[in-house]
Design a protein around this nucleic acid. Sequence first.
RNA 1: GGGGGUGUAGCGAAGUUGGUUAUCGCGCCGGCCUGUCAAGCCGGAGAUCGCGGGUUCGAUCCCCGUCACUCCCGCCA
Length: 618
Amino acid sequence: MKRTHTCGALGVADTGKTVRLNGWVHRTRDHGGVHFLNLRDRYGITQVVIGEEAPEALRALAASLRMEYCIALEGVVLERPQAMKNPSMVTGEIEVSATRIEILNTSEAVPFTIDERSDARDDVRLTYRYLDLRSFSMQRKIALRHTVMQTVREYLSSLDFIEIETPTMIKSTPEGARDFLIPSRLHPGQFYAMPQSPQLYKQILMASGFDRYFQIAHCFRDEDARGDRQLEHSQIDLEMSFVGKDEVFAVIEGMMTRVFHKGLGVDLETPFPRIPYDDAMNRYGSDKPDLRFDLELQDFAAFVAGSGFGVFENALAAGGAVKALVVPGQAGFSRKQITDLEETARTYGARGLAWTKVTRDDSGSITFEGGIAKFFAPRAGDIAAALGAGEGDLLLFVADQWKVAVTALGAVRSRLGHNLKLIEEGTFRFAWIVDFPLFEYDQDEDRWTAAHHLFSMPQAQYLETLESDPGSVKGDLYDLVCNGFELASGSIRIHDPALQQRVFQIVGFDPDEARRRFGFLLEAFRYGAPPHGGIAPGLDRLVMIMAGEESIREVIAFPKTATGVSPMDSCPGPVEEKQLAELGLMLAPRNTGNGPAGGDTPGKDPEGKAPDGNDREA
RNA sequence: GGGGGUGUAGCGAAGUUGGUUAUCGCGCCGGCCUGUCAAGCCGGAGAUCGCGGGUUCGAUCCCCGUCACUCCCGCCA
């Protein structure tokens, strides 16, 4: 009984037609004489009615239907009596009076119901992901992801980009994130790595003359996952020859414009504002600021001298910074609320969060009250004026090394943005963060490392001081941020082997080592490699933001948990001794007994295996 | 590696300042019901209170350990 319509298709115009529908029993309502069922498929829900005039066999069959039975049925489309129309349903003006029902497959009682109210824990949802994905909300998000991918492919193709796949088994590059390794059977003791990105290959493709490349690429990084980070994720990876960052920005702005228009019907304003990294850090305390609310950090150094407040004075004397945040109208904050904010600041390395409240004294002049008031009250008027603060405002301060101070206060800013509901929902505030530092100093290893990656172009004005002052070198590096998330990251690349060598040297690669690791790239660049640059928007985060979600797990069909486990298929799992032997591998002894899918995992094992998980250890 | 939160029936939750019978909603099973659309009404089954250990006459509750999920710091070229 093949379907003639989907469950979201029928309307009053179809009245009188004999139709066939296929789908799942979403819900049943048995009134004894008359029986209703809601039939669901990807496209919607249609009410089916089996009246008392129906043959006894059909009524018995209808009564036996349970949630999530997969059925086919034939019936006649009827316009519902006026009072029985349901305006909250797309198909609410009609119903299908069934004449025939066939059960295609029964269903056990489902662990959770397939509707918008179902609120099962993440691990339960992931164990039964196939049921979770039946919900309209998941189907919408996965479909949105499809629309985004299609729009991207269409758009980039129209601009002469060529989609090219690159290997997923590559050479391990120790710089950067931890690699996932694949042991080689044919070369015992040797390993492939899963790519952290197609970086080297896309640069080689530029050397190959494919001057516009893209790929929706899977990237693998063996680091601890987060809500916005999975062990494997997808990037819209692209690279262009003969361009500077303006051309890259224009391509991405055009892409985002189309993607948001097609996916959400939202029209973005372009060009996106550009914010230098230093500004972003100083104003928002983050290199991925949430621009949906203001609340900017301010510099407080000018008022520290002579205040007598040792904490601030010492921070400045040590070359650090004192940053202030004006929280308008929140002088009523309790001690507890301030302590909570201080905890946030401490998480990011600050030793404390100083505060005071702006008020007026008996004479009506601006003064401070509470916290560090006594050090700054004498100049309260000047300070308030300079910070743009007024009566009833709360002032918050962090004094520390510059990066700690801005980052910690930036975290407080972000926290306040959420707590005080300063964020306008449903808005998308994009910006380019530009002029990132090229190098960072690694205290632990006592050496300079690449802040982004090794192949980004230093800006021309720093070429002479590259070796003498790496810390001040800005690169042609850029991130696209939106609503507090890093949505894309890219750079103009080095195409000159000599300059590339200098960068390698600064991060401590001697020429031999550089040649061993990246020799093929240097070699390729000796044959007329064009200037080039690119960027890679994260597909999962993009769709997550568009869907209004806070975790990329919500927009990935089969994601892993925060610990990298897939509860549905018990992955990762052990392998047989024989497989290890073929690879020339032996397991080191471990003191912990249980694997990641250990014995007391809640929920029943879908295959009814031994509940202690021993089957997985074999 | 570190810190916070959570874990009670298939699912979501309440609860016990330590007390013998652990509660509610949904789902499930049975019955009733002619217009519902989160249908309604009556009845029923279903829980080693994540797991292990300790304290106690007695632990779901307190303590220690552990596992899982989750958020955060670190990490994430």
